[in-house]
Simulated scan of single mutants.
Amino acid sequence: MVGSLLSGLLILSLSACNSYRYGTEGSAEKSNLTMGVVKSKIVKGETTQDEILKLFGSPNLVSKNKSNREVWSYNKMSVENKAGSTDFFAGQRASQSTSSKSFDLIITFDENDVVADYSVVSTAY
């Protein structure tokens, strides 16, 4: 009886942590959209739109800036819910916390479809 009670508590505590990921492609595979990949693969004046597409896939948003240059925006967000201890007898969670991370990449191309400039905004809250 005590063994099955401990097993049940262990299963509850292991299932208390959920993680949700939202990427540019919506797939389960790991995203290339990281600061390391951006800094090592994007070179202003050299990297082309085709190379960006191969690295990161289709952008989340395509627009034009005031200079009529094409601008691509990528966003990766992750949300992690961490539950505290569960009161086994009351069936309620004692505490719960959520942390979110957002990674935004904005790329401006020149008239030859080559990276003119890019910026990265990374936030955690």
Results as ranks from 00 to 15, higher is better:
residue 37 V to S: 05
residue 42 I to Y: 04
residue 15 S to W: 15
residue 107 I to L: 02
residue 116 A to V: 03
residue 14 L to M: 13
residue 105 L to T: 02
residue 109 F to V: 02
residue 16 A to R: 05
residue 116 A to W: 07
residue 62 V to W: 05
residue 89 F to R: 12
residue 125 Y to F: 14
residue 72 W to C: 09
residue 40 S to T: 03
residue 48 T to R: 00
residue 3 G to H: 15
residue 92 Q to M: 15
residue 109 F to G: 03
residue 13 S to E: 15
residue 64 K to Y: 11
residue 112 N to E: 14
residue 61 L to D: 07
residue 89 F to S: 10
residue 105 L to C: 07
residue 121 V to L: 08
residue 82 K to R: 09
residue 55 L to P: 01
residue 108 T to H: 01
residue 122 S to P: 00
residue 108 T to L: 00
residue 50 D to M: 14
residue 109 F to A: 03
residue 52 I to W: 00
residue 87 D to T: 00
residue 26 G to K: 06
residue 89 F to L: 13
residue 14 L to K: 10
residue 2 V to C: 14
residue 125 Y to C: 15
residue 88 F to L: 10
residue 42 I to G: 00
residue 123 T to H: 03
residue 38 V to F: 00
residue 86 T to L: 14
residue 17 C to T: 15
residue 75 N to I: 10
residue 65 N to V: 06
residue 98 T to R: 06
residue 6 L to M: 11
residue 46 E to C: 05
residue 91 G to W: 02
residue 82 K to H: 09
residue 82 K to M: 13
residue 27 S to P: 07
residue 113 D to T: 10
residue 23 G to A: 09
residue 8 G to F: 08
residue 123 T to L: 07
residue 43 V to P: 02
residue 94 A to E: 12
residue 21 R to S: 07
residue 16 A to P: 04
residue 89 F to M: 12
residue 76 K to N: 01
residue 111 E to R: 07
residue 32 N to H: 06
residue 36 G to F: 06
residue 97 S to A: 09
residue 38 V to C: 04
residue 95 S to H: 05
residue 71 V to G: 05
residue 15 S to G: 11
residue 104 D to H: 08
residue 105 L to I: 05
residue 106 I to W: 06
residue 78 S to R: 11
residue 69 R to E: 13
residue 30 K to Y: 08
residue 102 S to C: 01
residue 6 L to R: 13
residue 71 V to P: 03
residue 9 L to W: 12
residue 29 E to N: 13
residue 99 S to G: 14
residue 50 D to S: 07
residue 53 L to K: 05
residue 86 T to I: 08
residue 39 K to H: 07
residue 45 G to N: 03
residue 119 S to C: 02
residue 100 S to C: 10
residue 100 S to R: 06
residue 56 F to L: 00
residue 59 P to T: 03
residue 83 A to I: 12
residue 27 S to W: 12
residue 11 I to G: 12
residue 86 T to Y: 07
residue 15 S to H: 04
residue 58 S to W: 04
residue 21 R to K: 09
residue 55 L to Y: 03
residue 98 T to I: 09
residue 120 V to S: 01
residue 26 G to W: 07
residue 125 Y to L: 15
residue 21 R to C: 10
residue 79 V to M: 10
residue 96 Q to L: 14
residue 10 L to M: 15
residue 110 D to Y: 01
residue 11 I to K: 13
residue 49 Q to C: 13
residue 52 I to C: 04
residue 73 S to G: 07
residue 112 N to H: 12
residue 107 I to T: 00
residue 57 G to V: 04
residue 30 K to L: 13
residue 66 K to M: 15
residue 58 S to H: 15
residue 56 F to D: 02
residue 30 K to Q: 10
residue 116 A to G: 02
residue 54 K to V: 04
residue 69 R to N: 15
residue 93 R to G: 02
residue 52 I to K: 02
residue 82 K to G: 06
residue 57 G to F: 03
residue 120 V to P: 04
residue 29 E to I: 06
residue 104 D to A: 03
residue 54 K to E: 10
residue 86 T to F: 14
residue 12 L to K: 12
residue 78 S to E: 05
residue 78 S to H: 09
residue 41 K to V: 01
residue 24 T to H: 13
residue 37 V to I: 07
residue 50 D to H: 10
residue 109 F to L: 09
residue 74 Y to C: 01
residue 97 S to W: 01
